[in-house]
Amino acid sequence: MTNTTPARKKHRFWTMERKQSAAGWAFLAPASILIFIFSFWPMFQALLISFKTGKPTALKYAEPLWRNYQYMLKDKVFQQSIGNTFTYLIIQVPIMLVLAIIFASLLNNRDLKFRGLFRTCIFLPCATGLVAYSMIFRTMFELDGMINGILLNLNLINERINWLNNPNTAKAVIILGLIWRWTGYNMVFFLSGMQGIEYSIYEAARIDGANQFQQLIKITIPLLKPIILVTGIMSTNGTLQLFDESMNLTKGGPANTTITMSHYIYNKMFVGAPNFGYAAAMSFVILIMVAILSAIETKVGDKR
């Protein structure tokens, strides 16, 4: 813009625009520099490490450079972990978001009593630590745990089910845990979005004869689209980086059928022989996956 504006006083360096833009830069600089040093520079370093191999204290560039990435194509456990993670993503995220919208629209009803109490109850799981709730879920689903006890007493099952020792039920327990932990979190976003929707729209719809379900489908969801998009991206991102549940609830077992990508990366770094280069390479593959999925979601969801 500077070159198009007529230079009124050529000898003065600090024009109005320059002053303003300098102030802008000065305000931006501290945060930008910190983000650069603590976030972007390490990411760049990690990219370099992902091309290296050898002992952690004496990393050398691999031959060929993409060797670590090549190995991933042969790594059956990593491929299995990708499969597991996407299973969680495809099943858990839609169920969770639908539940969150339903809860939010129920709580958005002005005639509901004890709204604050219900809201707190549904949000409360988000205040628990990831490790803590994973351990509690594991204890609950033990062979002699609470869930088996209740089901036996209600005569719903004849003998104890070993939930965490069967690939399908173990995955189901993790998905159940994720839904319990994160539904309230997403609900809060929807709730605040709904409070921004003009109440008179609903009144008008009711006069036109729309029932509760029609109001949800025709008014609430279309108007909440940007928020659904944001929660969708955040949930996708979070699920692809899932670690605590796999690590603490099932330890990746039985036989790696519940292991997530991040958990496998951790194993490669700290459990077996340390392999920094390979772990960094796998992290970058996750980054690319998150970027692609978020791009698709933005494209699909944002039709303005």
Partner: peptide, 10 residues
């Protein structure tokens, strides 16, 4: 077989 170390000790 049990699922965790705690359960084994149990």
């Amino acid at each position: 077989e049990v699922n965790s170390w705690d359960a084994y000790c149990g």
